[in-house]
Design a protein around this nucleic acid. Structure first.
Length: 615
RNA sequence: CAGGGUGUAGCUCAGCUUGGUAGAGCGCUUGCUUGGGGUGCAAGAGGUCGUGGGUUCAAGUCCCGCCACUCUGACCA
């Protein structure tokens, strides 16, 4: 391929519409153009990347036993009414009517259609298991499309649905997909992690998310430096550390398994509580006696104008972790106040799950004064009386001689202690995991990184098959609902995530397996027909030996071509000049490492094939 | 959906405060020049100033409505 024969238009300046790196670079490198908010044209260069990602996905889906088909984008409302989601889905669903006033929607996902297909076509357990998939456009009328391809209103997704006769079959399908996803993202050259996730609105039990690690990612994940544990920061359980920080269980201490109900033990402190979300009964605690003698007498101090934890801590000259932070929330029911350590953040999802409430909003100043009758910035647990439900993070029980608001303007208490000075309704895990916390699996410190979700596995069970009557006869002739799983990959999102992860200040650095072209050939003297012909021949030679190559035949200055090559991110740049022509060499520069090497022209194809074929 | 910002040439933006016949850089076209990191010179093409209304002798500029784009938040893959 020659550059002048295709459409490659690069931009020198950053378009004003783009805010994040992948969006900027995809626009600048001529891979993407905006048509409307969250809706894009993928230009030839970007399309080649897309096709390569899709090819990898297809190969691995087929290898795992997936069967490809193609469903329509437009779906009848009827099916969505049967599953119950027509009313639940909300304004995010693109809805439309035909000329006969019949209702349709643009599919944001395809559970209904796949379930309907299986209901019609599958009668017997002998036809199962079955894994069907498609690569198709999806539509979600996002409230706020942003980040270019990462959150568009139209996007491409691979979705596979598995159909089994029982849970064991589902487990087997799930494992196949889990393995396939690992292969796919590895082959795409991405640095990714698998995290345990929250099932969310789709419903179901087990679920894993595949996250590409990138500093600009929307999701924060914690992962262990020592073992393979990883979780969304919003889901990660927090262990309680002793005040001296995490430590291994001391030799000879009693180790007890406590049920969550008996976690509170008078006269005892817990240091190192382990509370895995997936096994709530396996709470493991190291018990050590409270040192009653260390408790100091309660003291009321004037702290004018100190409304935030930081202000109080600075005013009193103490660390933030010595302060009790109290957060007040408005819920479906009565207002709730929650205590966390001053330097911690509250995890609203944990609180919401605990309270089983639909509404959960942090109280503003008006609410704090009105519903709680408390001074904003000076509220505290002491003397709160039963005015509100008071909950506390597990860690709070461990803390002694804390500073807390005195419930009157410009005053705080020193030496506040749980039990002696205040009571709480319950302790639970309410805090947001942070860097340095202990891994719930192995006890080593956790690291925090940002990620972009590009794939998710769900066990749906019989949610849709029951709702829509997708049944089969089992070997006893009984009618049973099929057991389903669904497995998605955001294809366009993967493309953007790859750029988000692999770029530098000059442009994109494509992993070779998904690069639009693996090599670009640039003759320094485009006007020199010897060099130009040689570049043309060499491009053909590389292409013939299976290396996707493009010859930059524009009559531009070499510097322009170099800049464009870096911006577009071809993994290999091959330069031809007067010297290399006479010596029979070519100059190879690797985009990722910047390494330059000169090798004989005739062996270059084989050499590159070898070096590029690392997947 | 709430709150902010921006809409002027293909792109990035100035001009608006203080109303008076539309600007720059880049890109594009042509010629010369240059030829290993966005070369230099010259000549050109290109704009209903988002849109509708109002004020005014006169509106890109002032006022009001609408639309689009964008940022923060909530929501979400």
């Amino acid at each position: 391929m020659r550059v002048t024969e295709t459409l490659i238009s690069t931009l020198r300046e950053v378009p004003a519409e783009a805010d994040i790196v992948s969006h900027q670079l995809l626009l600048r490198s001529g891979m993407l153009r905006k048509v409307a908010a969250g809706i894009y044209t993928i230009l030839p260069l970007g399309h080649r990347v897309l096709l390569k990602i899709e090819a990898i996905i297809r190969e691995e889906m087929n290898r795992a036993g997936g069967i490809e088909l193609l469903m329509p984008i437009i779906q009848p409302a009827e099916l969505w009414q049967q599953s119950g989601r027509w009313d639940v889905y909300g304004p995010e669903l693109f809805r439309l009517k035909d000329r006969h006033e019949r209702s349709f929607c643009l599919g944001p996902t395809h559970e209904e259609l796949f379930t309907e297909l299986v209901r019609q076509e599958i009668r017997s357990y002998r036809q199962l298991p079955l894994m069907l998939y498609q690569i198709q456009n999806k539509y979600r009328d996002e409230r706020r499309p942003r980040f270019g391809l990462l959150r568009g209103r139209e996007f491409i997704m691979k979705d596979l649905y598995s159909f089994d006769i029982d849970e064991n079959g589902l487990d087997a399908s799930y494992r196949k997909m889990y393995a396939a996803y690992n292969r796919i993202f590895t082959r795409c050259g991405l640095d990714f992690r698998v995290v345990e996730a929250d099932p969310g609105a789709i419903g179901g039990s087990d679920t894993h998310e595949f996250m590409v690690m990138a500093d600009t990612g929307e999701a924060e994940i914690v992962f262990c430096s020592a073992c393979d544990y990883a979780a969304d920061v919003e889901k990660a359980p927090c262990l309680v550390e002793s005040q001296t920080g995490p430590r291994p269980r001391p030799e000879g201490t009693r180790r007890r398994i406590l049920s969550s109900a008996s976690r509170t033990r008078p006269g005892l402190k817990e240091c190192g509580v382990q509370d895995r979300a997936e096994s709530p009964d396996a709470v493991e605690a190291v018990l050590c006696p409270v040192d009653e003698a260390r408790l100091q007498p309660l003291q009321r101090v004037r702290t004018p104008g100190t409304r935030t934890v930081r202000e109080v801590a600075e005013y009193l000259g103490i660390p933030a972790e010595q302060v009790l932070k109290i957060l007040m929330y408005v819920t479906d029911d009565v207002p709730v106040a929650v205590l966390v350590r001053g330097d911690r953040s509250l995890n609203e999802i944990k609180l919401k799950n605990y309270l089983q409430t639909n509404v959960l909003e942090i109280a503003d100043e008006e609410d704090v004064a009105g519903r709680f009758g408390l001074p904003q910035g000076f509220a505290g647990p002491v003397g709160l009386g039963g005015r509100v439900r008071l909950l506390a993070d597990n860690e709070i029980k461990n803390l002694s001689n804390m500073v807390a608001g005195a419930n009157e303007p410009d005053f705080h208490y020193r030496n506040v202690n749980y039990g002696r000075d205040y009571q709480v309704e319950d302790f639970a895990d309410f805090r947001l995991a942070q860097e340095g916390d202990i891994c719930p699996k192995c006890g080593q410190p956790l690291q925090l990184k940002r990620g972009i979700e590009i794939g998710q596995l769900f066990k749906l069970g019989t949610k849709y098959s029951k709702a829509m009557g997708a049944n089969v006869l089992d070997e006893n002739g009984r009618e049973i609902p099929v057991v389903m799983g669904c497995y998605g990959i955001g294809v366009t999102r993967t493309l953007a995530a790859a750029v988000e992860q692999w770029h530098d200040q000059d442009g994109i650095i494509w992993p070779p397996s998904i690069a639009p072209y693996e090599a670009v050939i640039i003759p320094v003297g485009q006007h020199d027909s010897l060099q130009a012909d040689l570049a043309d021949d060499f491009c053909r030679q590389l292409t013939d030996s299976g290396i996707d190559s493009i010859y930059d035949d524009r009559s531009e200055r070499t510097g322009v071509k170099f800049k464009d090559a870096d911006l577009i991110g071809y993994p290999v740049r091959i330069v031809i000049n007067k010297d290399t022509v006479t010596e029979g060499l070519v100059e190879i520069k690797w985009r990722a490492s910047g390494a330059v090497e000169r090798i004989p022209k005739d062996t270059a194809a084989a050499y590159l094939r070898h070096k590029l074929a690392r997947d």
